Simulated scan of single mutants.
Amino acid sequence: MAVEKGRIVLVGRTGAGKSTLVNMLVKGDLTLPHLAVMGNGLHGTTKTCETFVGRGWTVIDTMGFGEPDTGSVSNTSAQKLVIDFLKNVKGRYSHIIFVIEKGRCDLVTEIIWNTFRQIFKGGEKNFVVLYTKTDDEWFQENLEEIKKEFPDCKQFLYVDFPEIDPELEEENSESRMSERDRLESELTRMFEGSWVEPDIFRMGDAEIEKKAENILEYIAKLIKKYGRTALQNSVTIFVAVVELVNIFAGGF
């Protein structure tokens, strides 16, 4: 039986690489069949929260945020989406990881990060910002700026898992194993048996409903601050921007 290494929740934008992380940590590689279906970087594949267990890790993979969406979402539906999400991520964690792809730090990412902070308030000690598809040179050169962008986080990581390529698979597989081992070593070093229980861990249904309402209002304020034009083609966390604006900010 594998020794428990940790319980992780992954949150991030569509295409950031969350499902790749699931497969590498829980399965150990990207060989088929995948545990968590991986997208092509343009369209999200995870539509609900899913829990995967293997190799000592328990990993909760959340839906990709920031994905274009269409259709009408009512106030009640928006509230239910947030409530369901909060109940799915209600737990104690060794790592609460915000996943971001190199080069995709923009207004949408900022809104997602600020909402991430609201969702997992009380678990800041185990926050981790993890950059994907990057190397040590880029990470070290940009680390000070990264710290300024995420001032509430004290732990930062990077990873770059080469994709499966039949012509280069022997070399790529070896690189993936090396990256996986390095990442696990870093995660273990950060954890050291220190679990956190975000505020939602102790909340009953009524408190969860109130927190969902507060989160939606918080998102709406951020949208109003930045303006609909800058974000009109993106979803923030749970529903289309235009719907949140209409529901909570009175439209533009």
Rank of each mutant, 00 (worst) to 15 (best):
K5W: 05
T20C: 02
E110M: 07
K102W: 01
D61V: 04
V242I: 12
R7T: 12
Y218Q: 08
V245L: 15
G103W: 01
A249K: 08
V9D: 14
I96V: 13
D205P: 01
F252R: 10
I97V: 12
R228E: 15
L35N: 09
L86N: 01
K210R: 06
K87N: 12
P166W: 08
R55L: 12
K121E: 12
G103N: 02
L107S: 11
F52I: 03
F127G: 02
T20V: 07
W138E: 13
M190F: 14
K225F: 11
E192S: 15
L183S: 02
I111T: 02
N88W: 03
K224A: 15
L86S: 05
L168E: 11
E145A: 14
A2W: 15
G123Y: 08
Y226L: 07
L130T: 01
R202W: 05
G66F: 08
S194Q: 15
R92N: 10
E243T: 04
C49W: 07
R202Y: 09
E149W: 11
I96N: 05
V235K: 14
D29N: 03
A230W: 04
Q232E: 13
G28A: 04
I247C: 10
E167Q: 10
R180L: 15
Y131E: 09
D205R: 11
A230H: 04
T45I: 12
E110N: 07
V239M: 05
R176N: 04
D106G: 06
A220E: 05
D106I: 06
M177T: 09
V53I: 12
V239D: 02
G66C: 06
G56P: 00
I111V: 08
A206D: 10
L25W: 00
S94W: 02
D106H: 03
V22A: 09
K125T: 11
V59G: 04
E110T: 10
R117Q: 10
R55Q: 12
N88H: 12
S74C: 07
N88Q: 14
M190D: 09
M190S: 07
N88C: 14
F65D: 10
E149H: 13
T48K: 15
L183P: 00
M177H: 07
I83K: 06
V3D: 05
L30Y: 01
V196I: 07
